[in-house]
């Protein structure tokens, strides 16, 4: 249902469109069932950046504080975007992998169950 407004043409501006981010797009990354990390990491990324460079070069700065992180076998990691599983190509860019602006990329490592198996 549309908003009820005094004016029929009321519409807020799209404040966070991609062109407002100076050439970057916003992408969030989150590690499923590792609750010690409280929230997804929200990054400004160049759409042409290789997916593998994000995983190898940026994610460790945040997720690397978790003791499971260094045990991740990236060949076995499962990926989910918008509720559907997908297979990112590490050698292709964010854009080529079809990750939208403000997209959320989830990775799962079922063999790693967090601190003593508590999903922490």
């Amino acid at each position: 249902m549309p908003v009820n407004a005094i004016r029929d043409d009321y519409h807020g501006e799209f404040r966070d469109r991609q062109e407002n981010f100076g050439g970057n797009q916003v992408v969030s990354f989150t590690w499923d069932q590792h609750m010690m990390i409280a929230t997804p990491l929200c990054l400004p990324l160049e759409p042409g950046m290789k997916f593998g460079d994000v995983v190898q070069g940026i994610l460790p700065g945040t997720f690397g504080h978790h003791p499971d992180f260094e045990k991740i076998d990236w060949d076995k990691a499962e990926w989910i975007m918008d509720g559907e599983s997908f297979k990112p190509d590490f050698d292709k860019s964010i854009e080529e992998n079809g990750i939208p602006h403000k997209g959320l990329v989830r990775f799962r490592t079922p063999e790693l169950a967090g601190l003593n198996g508590t999903h922490n």
Binding site: A38, L43, G61, T62, T118
Partner: peptide
């Protein structure tokens, strides 16, 4: 379990931290 682990990290002088911005 989370807090006990974090207390250990604090005791080691390496408190757990989220580096970056949240969604």
């Amino acid at each position: 379990p989370r807090y006990e682990y974090w207390r250990e990290l604090e005791a080691k002088g390496e408190p757990f931290e989220f580096e970056g911005l949240p969604q």
